[in-house]
């Protein structure tokens, strides 16, 4: 793979930006850091979600399923294994689960996939509950000395990996194939692209990344039980944030996550009694006013300025 000067410039700028945000724990207080953790967590989840759902147009609501599995990998594993082995392990388990789901559903299209992924989180939650019923164990305690700053840095590292991976996929044959599938699956198939295999391969990314994210965040929750680990809200929030940013560009979800986190924070502070209502309203506003997200908005502004001779 040969890199152009623009690529080198972008890589350098990204590395500098990463170095800067890595200093956050020293720049802001604990509250600022907890917002930072929220932003990086949703950036990782929404970006990996958009890597798959952006080109293929398959709306996946399985984020909570993979995330929950990841938290349980840490929750159960921390008693028996060193911590550093748990994150790759969560990634592998997430990928295997994603492959199984992909094999079962990605040959189907559209709404079947959405429904299946929504049901998946509930299904795994019930399996774990059944396991608890049989074993008699209740919630799991994750008592570690891992601090919020450690969690933040791990998430940042994961975010860097996700961006690198997305960038590499975008330049690869797989990325090209996926764009064709997204435009017209029939055409892709007739061009000789193995569409099912391409989709399953790509679906491993959000599955694995969400599981690792869950594994990283488990120590923050201290106490893990199915209803908290598999909350369906998570899947919906990731979709909303990714759509707000726009899935057309790699950086799209990021520009959705940041304003949405602050908007959500503002809503929680000012009207704590109507958070869910306002979340629904903001979702409607986003869908109606920004159907292509901020990415689409920026594109439109640039085009308009271009036509007026400003750029």
């Amino acid at each position: 793979m040969r890199l152009s000067p623009t690529d080198w410039r972008n890589l350098t700028l990204s590395a500098l930006a990463l170095a800067f945000v890595a200093c956050l724990p020293w720049l802001v207080g604990n509250y600022g850091l907890s917002i930072g953790v929220t932003i990086v967590m949703y950036t990782v989840l929404a970006t990996s979600w958009a890597l798959f759902s952006g080109p293929t147009h398959y709306i996946s609501l399985a984020t909570a399923a993979f995330f929950g599995v990841g938290t349980y990998v840490t929750g159960i594993g921390i008693e028996y294994l060193p911590y550093w082995t748990l994150l790759p392990l969560a990634g592998v388990i997430g990928a295997v689960l994603a492959a199984l789901v992909g094999l079962a559903t990605l040959r189907l299209s559209g709404v079947y996939f959405v429904i299946f992924t929504l049901g998946l989180a509930e299904f795994i939650r019930q399996v774990i509950t059944w396991g608890q019923n049989v074993s008699g164990a209740k919630g799991i305690y994750v008592l570690t000395s891992i601090t919020e700053a450690h969690i933040y840095w791990q998430l940042l590292g994961l975010a860097a990996l996700v961006y690198l991976l997305g960038w590499a996929i975008g330049r690869s044959r797989l990325g090209f194939a996926l764009r064709i599938i997204g435009d017209d699956e029939q055409v892709a198939r007739h061009s000789g692209i193995h569409t099912a295999r391409a989709k399953i391969l790509l679906f491993l990314v959000p599955g694995s990344v969400a599981a690792i994210t869950g594994a990283i965040l488990a120590p923050r929750y201290v106490y893990i039980e199915p209803s908290l680990a598999f909350t369906p809200m998570l899947s919906f929030q990731v979709v909303i944030m990714a759509l707000l940013g726009g899935t057309g560009r790699l950086w799209g979800p990021l520009v959705g996550v940041i304003p949405f986190t602050f908007l959500w924070e503002g809503i929680s502070i000012t009207v704590p009694n109507q958070t869910t209502l306002l979340l629904g309203v903001s979702f409607l506003v986003i869908v109606y006013l920004l159907p292509k997200g901020f990415v689409g908005l920026f594109g439109a502004i640039r085009r308009r300025m271009g036509s007026e001779g400003l750029v």
Partner: peptide
């Protein structure tokens, strides 16, 4: 008063 939405992160 703050609503945590039954979510430990919140």
């Amino acid at each position: 008063e703050y609503d945590d939405q039954t979510n430990p992160g919140e």
